[in-house]
C-alpha cells in the first residue's frame, strides 16, 4: 500500500443553493519516500485536500489513507504520524524559537534531542536566534522554524501547503534544496505550489485546476504528454506578432512566454508561421522548444474547456 492513497474524494462547501464543489472526485497514490507535488493555482483545491489527508476536514464522499490508516476511522493514528505545515504561519508568535520547537516536541511525547539529527540542517540556521520571539523573525526564518516544528516528531509523511508562495526566487531555490535533503532521509513529502517551474523538483506531480486533477505523472512524463510541436518566436513588435500568430491558420495556440511567444503548431503548421514572420518584414528569431510544465498546464486547461 502506498504512503498516501486517495480514492474518489469529493468535498463541497456551502448550502444547497450556493454549493461550491471544491474537490470533484480525486484519485491518486503516493509511494513511500516519494516527493510528490500538487501543482495548481489558488482555488484548485490543494488546501482542502491537505486538510482532509491530515484529518482536519471530513470529505463528503470517497476514501483516503495515510501510512495505511484511514483518514476517518484512524484519525488519531494519522495525527501522530504526519507533519503539517499550513500555508499561513502557524506558530506561536509570542513564544521564542526554542519554545515553539519544544512545544511541538512535547505534544508528540518526544524531545528535541531525540530527533535533533533530522532537523539539524534546518534548525541550526535559526538556532543563533533561539531566544527571539517567533513573531519577530524574518519570513525566511519563520519558514525554517515552521518546517523544524513540523518535523520534530519524525513524521513518516510530511504535508507542506504552499511553502514557497510569496517567497523570492533565491529563497525558493533554497527551500527546495532542503526538501531534497529530507527526501534522502526517507520521509514521504507532499508539497503544493502555484509555481509551475517547481514541478521539475518533484518525483511526480498532480496538475490541479478547479477541484480536478488534470494529469498525474513524472515531470518528464507530463512534458511527453504534450505531443505537439512547439515554437519560440520573437521579433521587434511582440504585441503585433502575438495577434498575427493567434490568427495564423497553422497555429493552435499562441501566448507570451517570457522573452518569446510560444506557438503551438497544428500538424504541418510550420510553413504558415514562417510566411507570417517573413511578411512582417522585421528581424525575427524562431526555433523549436521543449515544452515545460506551464505549457502543458495551459494545454490541459484548453482541452478541458473544449476549445
Amino acid at each position: 500500500m502506498g504512503a498516501v492513497t486517495v480514492d474518489n474524494i469529493v468535498k463541497f462547501y456551502g448550502k444547497k443553493e450556493a454549493r461550491v464543489t471544491a474537490l470533484q472526485g480525486l484519485s491518486f497514490d503516493v509511494q513511500k519516500g516519494e516527493l510528490f507535488g500538487l501543482i495548481g493555482p489558488d482555488g484548485a483545491g490543494k488546501t482542502s485536500l491537505f486538510r482532509i489527508l491530515t484529518t482536519l476536514l471530513l470529505a463528503d464522499a470517497g476514501t483516503a489513507s495515510v501510512d495505511g490508516f484511514d483518514v476517518v476511522k484512524d484519525y488519531k493514528a494519522i495525527r501522530n504520524r504526519v507533519g503539517y505545515m499550513p500555508g499561513r504561519f502557524s506558530l506561536y508568535q509570542d513564544l521564542s524559537v526554542r519554545e515553539n520547537l519544544e512545544f511541538f516536541a512535547t505534544i508528540f511525547n518526544t524531545t528535541i534531542e531525540e530527533n535533533y539529527e533530522l532537523v539539524k540542517d534546518i534548525y541550526s540556521q535559526i538556532e543563533p536566534f533561539r531566544d527571539r520571539k517567533a513573531g519577530k523573525l524574518s519570513g525566511g526564518m519563520k519558514q525554517k522554524l515552521a518546517l523544524s516544528c513540523a518535523l520534530i516528531h519524525r513524521p513518516s509523511v510530511l504535508f507542506l501547503d504552499e511553502p514557497t508562495t510569496g517567497v523570492d526566487a533565491v529563497s525558493r531555490k533554497e527551500f527546495w534544496e532542503m526538501l531534497a535533503h529530507l527526501k534522502q532521509q526517507g520521509i514521504t513529502i507532499l508539497v503544493s505550489t502555484p509555481y509551475m517551474d517547481e514541478a521539475a523538483r518533484c518525483d511526480r506531480v498532480a496538475l490541479m485546476q478547479e477541484g480536478k486533477i488534470m494529469s498525474v505523472n513524472t515531470p518528464a512524463g507530463i512534458v511527453n504528454e504534450f505531443g505537439r510541436p512547439l515554437l519560440a518566436v520573437k521579433n521587434t513588435n511582440m504585441l503585433q506578432l502575438l495577434q498575427a500568430m493567434k490568427s495564423c491558420e497553422g497555429v493552435e495556440d499562441a501566448y507570451p512566454f517570457g522573452e518569446y511567444h510560444h506557438v503551438v503548431l497544428k500538424p504541418g503548421g510550420e510553413a504558415a508561421v514562417k510566411t507570417i514572420l517573413e511578411q512582417m518584414k522585421m528581424p525575427y528569431e524562431q526555433h523549436p522548444v521543449t515544452p515545460d510544465v506551464e505549457d502543458c498546464f495551459m494545454a490541459l486547461m484548453r482541452n478541458k474547456d473544449g476549445q
Binding site: 493555482p41 508562495t165 510569496g166 502555484p194 485546476q209 498546464f297 484548453r302
Partner: peptide, 20 residues
Amino acid sequence: DEPTGGVDPVTRREFWQMIY
C-alpha cells in the same frame, strides 16, 4: 503589488494583456 500571485497561467497572461 504582486497582482498575479497564485493565478493560473492562462489568466496570468490575460492580466498582462490588460496591463498593456
